[in-house]
Amino acid sequence: MTFNLSSNIWVWIAVFFTLSVYSFLWKDNPLFKFAESVTVGVGMGYAMVQWFTLSLVGRFWTPLTTDFSSRFHLIIPAIMGLMLITRLIPRFTWLSRYALAFTMGAGSGFALPRVIQAGVLQQLYATMLPIEFSLHGFLYNFIIIVGVLSGLIYFFFSKEHKGWFGSIANVGIWFLMVGFGATFGYTVMARLSLFIGRVLFVLRDALGFLKI
């Protein structure tokens, strides 16, 4: 068993924090709180620096100052953005509504036809399958149609789930549960591989124990 310890101090810092986080599984302790504070602080510092250089300067200031003749209209959203910041001043909070109104209004208008296309039309088209009298047709087309219809009935809010209506809704919830179970099982392996990734980091990059 040969070790080939890494000479990079950063790797050991990462190992320290990795183990601090895993200590949370045992119980909450100052090491975990330390790691939590560091990640919040460092993440926020990173975001702030990137925000300043890439966003504020890169996507606002530089385009505005280098090509003012065609980009002058960027002043308007800048003013709206400044109005957004007035949220912090109690007397002027109402100014921020303009920015929110613009964003929400435009965002909703943007989404409306797309939601109909993707969430309604496309889903309906994909479910309009022919009913075939074969095993394949039953297992696939028929089951999908029944599942979608009964699922929709389950989500009805205006009628109580009683009688024949309740039975169909019951079929719907069965479909939903099977679907959820499938999603759950599908992601299990992916989640486990995350853990394997961290273990490899410690064993291979820090300790040099493995050569893969």
Partner: peptide, 8 residues
Amino acid sequence: PNMAAKRA
């Protein structure tokens, strides 16, 4: 069935 649930 998973596809049906997703679509519903």
